[in-house]
Amino acid sequence: MSHIHIPDGVLPWWLWVTGWVATALLLGMASRMATRTGTRRAVPLVGAISALVLVAMSIEIVPIAYHVNLTVIAGALLGPWLGAISAFIVVLVLALVGHGGITVVGLNTLMIATEMALGWALVHGGLRLLGSRRVRPVAAASTIVTLAITTTMLVGIVALAGSGATARHTGALDVETLEFRNPFSGDLINVGLLGGDNHGHDGEHATEAGHVDEHETEAEHDDEHEEGGALSVSRFAAVVYTLGPIGWVLEALVTAGVLGYVVRVRPSLLLRSVNAPPSASARVGDEHGGR
């Protein structure tokens, strides 16, 4: 629920262009940081973890529009900089199979990168604080906090888009009466879409105000289309905060289960990087060290 499943052409252009610009800057910084510790090490690791996230995302629970993400795990293993690169790759590949819009790739990348960075900080911080035995509760709590924050970011993005910015005409369709207007028929022919009254809105205006007010009614119609076409941010927030927690809990259970399994089977994988000093350049999976 956290990353944006908003189709192309719904958010205003300035918002998604800003998303792309911010992502370009983030990728520039992230690749510089990745190159410092070795491209040869970073490329296969990011490739494998991104592929893992993509495979996980193919596991769906359609009725609640939920799929597994594994972004917190990916963040915990990759760290914030490689996480940002991985986020871009995952979002781009998903967009190329039709899962999410191409124009919102930038905004989606920022969301997933934030998820990975927060996941990394919370999981590692929690394990340092509470110890490796508490890996499951730490993972679960980190996931819920992370997803709650990024879901709020999502609502913020829709709010940023604003009702005025996203308002759009719906062509010949009157959104109030669900009737199609025929501009060349002098409002004589109206076709009701969902049980609309054939002598509805336009007809009433014509008989009450006559032809003198024709232009005024046209203008009123346009205003109604603008208002009717707006996105409802409060309703969006209500739905997202109702459905979201189900997804957060499921994701928390999966993250806790997977990280618990990893710590049980190969504890050095996660705990070594937790206990390592911040300056250590060895990465997860770096069995031989070095470049």
Binding site: V158, R168, V175, L178, L194, E227, G228, A230, R235, F236
Partner: peptide, 9 residues
Amino acid sequence: FAAAANVPL
């Protein structure tokens, strides 16, 4: 369902 103000949108 969450954000669109009407059926056509």
